[in-house]
Design a protein around this nucleic acid. Structure first.
Length: 109
DNA sequence: GGGGTGACCCAGT
DNA sequence: TACTGGGCCACCC
């Protein structure tokens, strides 16, 4: 598995996020764990920054629901339009978080 | 080849 | 709730 292929996997996964739901960088890295060496949320962030155009990048946020720096305004507008629950300028990941397979995130104490 | 940087995350304060 | 420090690793000087 080359890095280039990993990029493709990330972009494909992001495209598969349903409207009105979001995924965190960490969740993406977790789903694709080890496919490119190690589980590295940071690489996902870098990949989105460099190759994120062309996919619904606004559905990818930090684990605390923060929107991507420099694009907060646009991301917030798009998320609102899709009905994603927001608190201020943050996504309520516990409400809108999504993982492939259709289930809810790991645990919710 | 060496060193700084970043669309991150987690645990601790 | 907000801030800090340590770990991480591809990318770009």
């Amino acid at each position: 598995m080359t890095l280039q292929e990993y990029v493709e996997e990330v972009l494909t996964l992001v495209e598969s996020i349903p409207e009105g739901r979001v995924m965190s960088y960490g969740a993406i890295a977790d789903v694709l764990a080890d496919r490119a060496g190690r589980n590295s949320p940071r690489q996902v962030g870098t990949i989105m920054a460099r190759h994120g155009g062309g996919v619904p990048w606004h559905r990818v946020v930090s684990s605390s629901g923060r929107l991507p720096p420099g694009h907060e305004r646009e991301a917030r507008a798009r998320l609102l339009a899709e009905g994603v629950p927001l608190r201020g300028d943050r996504v309520l990941i516990s409400e809108a978080g999504w993982v492939p397979g259709g289930s809810v995130p790991p645990e919710r104490p």
